[in-house]
């Protein structure tokens, strides 16, 4: 049985001066140790979700439970220690004047003794392969490197959950890969729960589970395979489908029998290879 680590129950949220609900009666669970992708076009409510999850905003209706604690004004500081967030803009979350200062920032806030801080800063920077840049200033780093420092800052606090709030959308392909790969390795090693809020479908394809948001509501929830079989519907929602799914579709139209829509190119290549042998 999968343990649920975050629960949303009938959550609704409305920004001041806005008619429409940013989130409307949203309920779902996030399970311990899973990689959950929340996808949706810009304005679908997915970023609001991130803000609610660590108490930067509070829902008008419904309740959110994180690690068994109900999210409230009193509990947010404890919850924030368990949830680490990496935001979209690499520059606007870099607080320290150098890499090490930035990683230490969260530790300082939580009153960690200095000797331990030094250790943790070093360890977490090594984990994201930024330990050679200890004294580097942020304007000498690439976007991907800054985001890795942000991840180290989160990691140093030893959270159970990491939220990537469109953390790769401002990066170039290389930076994107760096960040996703870093998080993937960390997740394996520390059995973290990862919530990635994104509109990059290739990134979402690698998740364990996907939630599709539309107009502030959960539109569909399922495994990547289930979600990407929605096909045209996804494109109508302003999203896209991964390349391998498009490729599978094209082959089917050309009359090649395939057992399913493939999410990985390797699998598709293998099936094509087998089908050739059977011909």
């Amino acid at each position: 049985m999968k343990e649920s680590i975050v629960t949303l129950k009938e959550v609704s949220f409305q920004y001041d001066l806005q008619e429409r609900y940013a989130l409307n009666n949203v309920s779902f669970n996030i399970y311990e140790g899973e990689w959950l992708a929340i996808v949706g076009h810009n304005g679908s409510g997915k970023s609001t979700m991130a803000k609610l999850l660590n108490g930067l905003q509070f829902p008008q209706e419904g309740e959110i439970t994180v690690c068994g604690t109900l999210l409230s004004e009193e509990s947010i500081w404890d919850i924030r220690r368990k949830i680490g967030m990496v935001f979209q803009n690499p520059d606007n979350q870099f607080v320290g004047t150098t890499v090490q200062d930035d990683v230490a920032f969260g530790l300082e806030n939580n009153g960690i003794p200095r000797e331990e801080m030094v250790q943790r800063v070093e360890d977490s920077l090594r984990k994201v392969k930024m330990d050679k840049f200890l004294h580097q200033e942020p304007h000498h780093l690439s976007g991907g490197q800054k985001q890795r420092v942000a991840i180290a800052g989160v990691l140093a606090l030893r959270p159970s959950i990491i939220i990537l709030d469109e953390a790769t959308s401002m990066l170039d392909p290389r930076g994107r890969e760096e960040v996703v790969e870093t998080v993937r390795l960390l997740k394996e090693e520390k059995s973290l729960t990862v919530i990635s809020i994104t509109h990059d479908l290739e990134e979402a394809a690698k998740a364990d589970r996907i939630i599709v948001m539309n107009k502030g509501e959960v539109f569909r929830e399922g495994t990547p395979e289930e979600i990407f079989s929605m096909d045209e519907q996804l494109i109508q929602l302003g999203l896209d489908i991964p390349f391998s799914v498009k490729m599978s579709k094209a082959f089917r139209q050309k009359g090649i029998e395939l057992s399913k829509h493939y999410l990985s190119e390797e699998e598709l290549v293998t099936e094509l290879w087998t089908s050739r042998c059977n011909m």
């Binding site: 094209a250 190119e265 094509l272 290879w273």
Partner: peptide, 27 residues
């Protein structure tokens, strides 16, 4: 598309006549 063609050619041990740049052409 090109990356996929390369993978496919390698697995199948064959070579298509040219590099295709669209899904439609390649399929």
């Amino acid at each position: 598309v090109v990356r996929f063609q390369l993978k496919l050619e390698e697995k199948m041990g064959m070579k298509l006549e040219k590099i295709h740049l669209t899904i439609d052409e390649l399929s």
